[in-house]
Structures are given as C-alpha cells and as structure tokens.
Design a protein around this nucleic acid. Sequence first.
DNA 1: TATTACTGTAATATTTGTATTACATGTAAC
DNA 2: GTTACATGTAATACAAATATTACAGTAATA
Lengths: 70, 70
Amino acid sequence: MGIRKLKNTIGRKVKYLRIENNLTQEKLAEKINMSREHISCIERGKNLASTETLYYLAKFFNVDIKYFFD
Amino acid sequence: MGIRKLKNTIGRKVKYLRIENNLTQEKLAEKINMSREHISCIERGKNLASTETLYYLAKFFNVDIKYFFD
DNA sequence: TATTACTGTAATATTTGTATTACATGTAAC
DNA sequence: GTTACATGTAATACAAATATTACAGTAATA
C-alpha cells in the first residue's frame, strides 16, 4: 500500500469511528486536543495523521492501532 | 503513555528488530529508504518515527504495527 | 599503531503535520 | 427563505519529521 492509499484508509477509519460514536469533527477535535480543520483533512485523505495523533485516536476510541492500517 | 515514553518504546523496538535481523543502521536505512542518522535518532528516542515510517518498518520486519506501541 | 566498521551528534535545509483564521458550502428545521 | 449546525477549504504560520553533510567516538582487528 502506498502513502496515498494509507491516507485514505486511515481517513475512512477515523470518520467511521467518529460517526459511530456520534461525534462531530469539532467535538472529536476537543476530545483529543486538535483542530477540526485537521481532522477534516485526515478524514478526506488530504493529510496523514501522525504517529502521535493515531496513538491518541486509538486510545480515545479504545481500538487497536492496527485498526487504522487494515 | 506520554510522547516521551512513546518515543523510547518505539526506539527500543526498532533497535531490537534491527539487531535481531543482523542489520546495521546503514543497511536498514537503505532498505526502507531513509537516512542512517534519522534511524539513530529514532532508536535513541530523540525523534518519533512518523506513521509512514512505522508502516514501512512493520512491513519490512513483518511485524504488526501494534508491536511498536506495546 | 593504524585502519576499518558502526554509531553518535550537531548544523542546516526541506517537507509535512498541525493550528489559526476566515469564508464558503451543504443540510435540515423552522 | 432564513437560521443554525456541520463540514469543506484556502492562506498563513509554526513545529516536528527527515535528509544531507560533516565530524567525533568507540570497538575490533590486522
């Protein structure tokens, strides 16, 4: 899998978890201390979430890091 | 786990996998297309490997991404 | 001792992740 | 149609990841 596909994969997972947990981008942003705009970019596959961000997302949603890479 | 501990944890794992596979920092750097200096920093916990780097490391060493996070 | 291989480390530059601000778009309810 | 909420998106700026270059240190070995 290349970098582009990786961004899309992670983006889909983040969006799915967010919706599943009934959170807006803004609420999620508050929870993990990041900007709504950046979450939007990550979900749309424009940006690649950093290691730190993925770590906190996994922790918050109580999923394994592995989940984001499938 | 905070960011500092995360760096150290990942660094230890990278070094362990590298030694276990009988590779020098330089050889590993060639394999995954990154600089030896940066691998050194990652192993010593000075830098945090990016999502992209962790992905390629996991692929190369044939381990799950989860491994790097304990 | 001299040499070779491996690693640490600093300085500088580039790229990318992220925040902030601002505005546009969409969508549902009223 | 307008109000309110959610999201897209662009511009600017900063921080962190990474490359490059250069040099120092350490250990093994001829």
